[in-house]
Each structure stands twice: as structure tokens, then as C-alpha cells.
């Protein structure tokens, strides 16, 4: 019994060492997909357990975060097919603002008090600009900029051609810039 426990522990320890450092990243993506914390938590747990079960298929040295996110997205798609989850609401601004706040709170140790106000304003504008993008552009940008995935990893994850991702990132950033300039102009006019 002791020997079995130790062997069980080896796989679990390996998994915890390699995969669990990406738990926050997977949770962030799950929140963006599920759009509510309860579903995101379930999705995260399903993803971790599935990843553990198929951990022998993961090649050490490759991008574990991309591997975990692939499992997350597959779980998410399958749960829709099975009808066990409802599609998130089309309007997402409120949830995006909540995410922004959570992200800021998680990072508050790095925020100087004097920067807080301006930081919040920038954060809010970024979220507004992101929300103005179509879901495809926003998803590609977040996977590249926040999750640090390569274009190829995003293409594999979303099951679209590499050129499509390249185009979505390029176009998404251009639209972001336009949206931010629009927001800046609007704030300039109202003096805020």
C-alpha cells in the first residue's frame, strides 16, 4: 500500500510541478469563456482532472499552458454540445469590468497608491476597447497578449488556420488603437 501511494504521488507531484503553476492562467481563460465564476470554477476543475488523467500524453518541454488551454476549450465546446452549459449572454461589458477589477485586485501589490487612479482609468479604457472588439478579435488578442501563446498555438487551440490568427491579431490591435483614440477624444471633450 505504501509503495502504491508513493507511485501515485510521483505522477501527482510531477503534474503539480508542471501543470499547477498555470492554474491562474487557465482560470482566467475559463472566466472569459464561461462568463460567470461558478461555471468557470467547474470548468477549471474538469480541465485539471482531465489533464491529470491524460498527463502521460503531455510532452515535457512543450508549452504546458497551451496544452491545458486546449483541454479547457475542448471541455467547453463539448459541454455546449451536451447541453450541460448555457451559452453566455451576448452582452459582456459588465462581466468584463468585473474581470478587470479582479485582475487589478490580484495585482494590487504592484500598484502604487498615486498610480491607482490613473491606472484604473487606463484599465477601464482598455476593457472598454476590448469589449468593443468582436469576440474573435478579442479572443485572439487575449490569448497572445495575456496568455503568451504563439500564433500557431492559438491556431491549434481555436482550430483555425495560422493565417487567420495572424490577421485577427493584426486587425484586432488596429481596432483597439482606433477604439482607444475614440475613448481618449471622448474623455478629452468632457474633461475627465
Amino acid at each position: 500500500m505504501t509503495v502504491k501511494r508513493v507511485r501515485s504521488g510521483e505522477k501527482r507531484l510531477d503534474f503539480e510541478r508542471v501543470a499547477l503553476p498555470h492554474l491562474n492562467a487557465v482560470y482566467t481563460a475559463a472566466l472569459r469563456l464561461a462568463r460567470n465564476p461558478a461555471d468557470a470554477e467547474d470548468l477549471l476543475q474538469e480541465t485539471v482532472l482531465r489533464a491529470f488523467r491524460f498527463f502521460h500524453q503531455f510532452t515535457e518541454g512543450t508549452n504546458c499552458r497551451a496544452w491545458l488551454l486546449t483541454i479547457l476549450y475542448n471541455n467547453f465546446r463539448n459541454s455546449y454540445r451536451r447541453g450541460t452549459r448555457e451559452q453566455p449572454a451576448a452582452s459582456s461589458e459588465e462581466f468584463d469590468r468585473e474581470l478587470e477589477l479582479r485582475s487589478a485586485l490580484a495585482d494590487q501589490s504592484r500598484i502604487n497608491p498615486e498610480d491607482l487612479l490613473s491606472g484604473r482609468m487606463i484599465g477601464h479604457r482598455i476593457e472598454v476597447a476590448l469589449s468593443a472588439l468582436s469576440a474573435e478579435f478579442r479572443e485572439a488578442l487575449l490569448l497572445v497578449d495575456v496568455q503568451d501563446l504563439s500564433y500557431q498555438e492559438v491556431a491549434d487551440l481555436l482550430e483555425v488556420p495560422l493565417g487567420t490568427i495572424k490577421s485577427r491579431v493584426s486587425r484586432g490591435r488596429a481596432l483597439m488603437r482606433e477604439a482607444l483614440r475614440g475613448i481618449e477624444r471622448a474623455h478629452g471633450k468632457t474633461g475627465t
Partner: peptide, 8 residues
């Protein structure tokens, strides 16, 4: 984007 829509 990375800083303001970051990891939760």
C-alpha cells in the same frame, strides 16, 4: 492589454 486584462 497584458497589464489591464491580466491573469485572475
Amino acid at each position: 492589454v497584458r497589464q489591464n486584462a491580466g491573469i485572475v
